[in-house]
C-alpha cells in the first residue's frame, strides 16, 4: 500500500503526529492545527490541538485559542474521572468509585489504563470538532497507546470499556476517519525508527498507511565551488580515517548536506513517499513566530489546499 500524501491525511478527522523523540513533533503538531484552523474562503474548520500530558501547559479542559482553534492538554486522571462519570451517569456513585482507594490504585498502577484513557479522551473529542490534531508521545510510548486499545479489548469480556475499545480500533483503522503522520529528521536513527514504526502501525491498522515527514532539512548548499577548491587530487586517498569532527562551519555545511542526502536514501530505497520541511531557525524569534513560519511553509508545500497539492 502506498503512503498517502500529507494533504490527504490532513483531510481526516483524527490526525496523530508521532516519531522519534526530538524530531520536532510538538511544534509540527501545533503548526498543523493552526494551519487547518486558518481562515480559507468558504471552508471553515473547527480544530482541536491536543497535547498529551505536556508539562508546559495546564492540564485538563479544552480552551479556545481563537475563533476556530482550541487546545487540550490531555490528563489521564482527569480523563478517567470524566469517563467514569459519563458511563455511570449518577454523579454521587461516580464520585464514590473514583475516590475509592482500590479503584484509584487500579487506575494509576494497572498497565495500559493510563494510555487507554488518554486515547479515549482524544477519540471522544472527535464528536465536537472537524479535526483533532494530536501531538502523540514518541515512538514506543505512542505505539503503546494504540496497543492499549487492543489489550483491553482482549482483557475485558464485555461492558462499555470493551465496546469503546472496539469502536476506537475501528476509528483508528479507518483511512477515512484517522491518519498518522510519522515525523523524522534526516538522520539515521529517526529515519530507521520511522520505518519500524510504520511496520508496527500496519500490523495494528492494516488498511490505514501512515504519511511521512522529514523535518529540519539543511538548506541546499552548492558544494561545487567550495569543494573543488578544497579537494586536491590526492586528499581522499591520503586520509583514510578522517575525524568526524568538522573543521569549519563551511566544512560542516558541506558534509551535513551530503550526509542528509545519504541518510534519506534509507527512505528512498523503499520508495517511501514523504514531504520535507526545511530547517527554520532564528535565534531572535520567539516560539510563536517559529510556529507561524512553519504554518506558512506547510501552506506553500500544499498541505492544506487541494490545488497546490495537485500541482506538486
Amino acid at each position: 500500500m502506498t503512503c498517502p500524501s500529507i494533504f490527504e491525511i490532513l483531510t481526516r478527522k483524527i490526525i496523530f503526529v508521532t516519531g522519534k523523540g526530538g524530531v520536532g513533533k510538538t511544534v509540527l503538531t501545533e503548526a498543523i492545527a493552526r494551519g487547518l484552523a486558518a481562515n480559507r474562503d468558504g471552508d471553515e474548520k473547527n480544530v482541536l490541538w491536543v497535547t498529551i500530558e505536556d508539562p508546559a501547559y495546564p492540564a485538563g479542559e479544552v480552551r479556545a485559542l481563537g475563533d476556530r482553534l482550541s487546545h487540550l492538554n490531555c490528563d489521564a486522571t482527569q480523563a478517567f474521572d470524566e469517563y467514569v462519570g459519563m458511563k455511570i451517569g449518577i454523579p454521587t456513585l461516580a464520585k464514590i468509585f473514583t475516590q475509592n482507594k482500590l479503584m484509584k490504585y487500579l487506575s494509576q498502577a494497572a498497565p495500559g489504563i493510563h494510555e487507554l484513557v488518554l486515547l479515549g479522551k482524544v477519540w471522544f473529542e472527535r464528536n465536537h470538532f472537524d479535526h483533532v490534531v494530536v501531538d502523540m508521545p514518541s515512538t514506543g510510548y505512542g505505539l503503546a497507546m494504540f496497543h492499549s486499545a487492543y489489550n483491553f479489548r482482549k482483557l475485558f469480556s464485555g461492558g462499555p470499556l470493551y465496546e469503546d475499545a472496539g469502536a476506537m480500533i475501528d476509528s483508528f483503522s479507518s483511512a477515512r476517519e484517522s491518519g498518522v503522520i510519522i515525523a523524522a529528521l534526516p538522520e539515521e536513527m529517526p529515519l530507521r525508527e520511522a520505518i519500524e514504526l510504520d511496520h508496527f502501525l500496519l500490523e495494528l491498522f492494516p488498511e490505514n498507511r501512515s504519511a511521512f515527514v522529514v523535518n529540519r532539512c539543511f538548506p541546499e548548499f552548492d558544494l561545487t565551488d567550495a569543494e573543488l577548491k578544497r579537494k586536491s587530487p590526492h586528499s581522499e586517498a591520503q586520509q583514510p580515517v578522517q575525524s568526524p569532527v568538522p573543521t569549519s562551519l563551511e566544512d560542516y555545511a558541506i558534509k551535513r548536506t551530503k550526509l542528509e542526502k545519504q541518510n534519506l536514501k534509507i527512505w528512498a530505497e523503499i520508495d517511501l513517499l514523504y514531504s520535507s520541511i526545511p530547517y527554520l531557525l532564528n535565534a531572535t524569534l520567539s516560539r510563536d513566530s517559529l510556529i507561524t513560519q512553519l504554518t506558512a511553509t506547510m501552506e506553500t508545500l500544499g498541505w492544506f489546499t487541494a490545488q497546490t497539492a495537485r500541482l506538486k
Binding site: F221, A226, P246, L249, E250, A253, L281
Partner: peptide, 26 residues
C-alpha cells in the same frame, strides 16, 4: 567552536552559511 575557523568568502551569504551562524548564536 567553529565560528572563528576560516571559510570561503561567499559562504556566510548562502542560506546554509546564515543558518550555521544562527545556530551558533543561539
Amino acid at each position: 567552536y567553529l565560528k572563528s575557523q576560516p571559510v570561503s568568502p561567499s559562504f556566510f551569504a548562502s542560506p546554509a552559511g546564515q543558518l550555521t551562524l544562527q545556530i551558533c548564536a543561539r
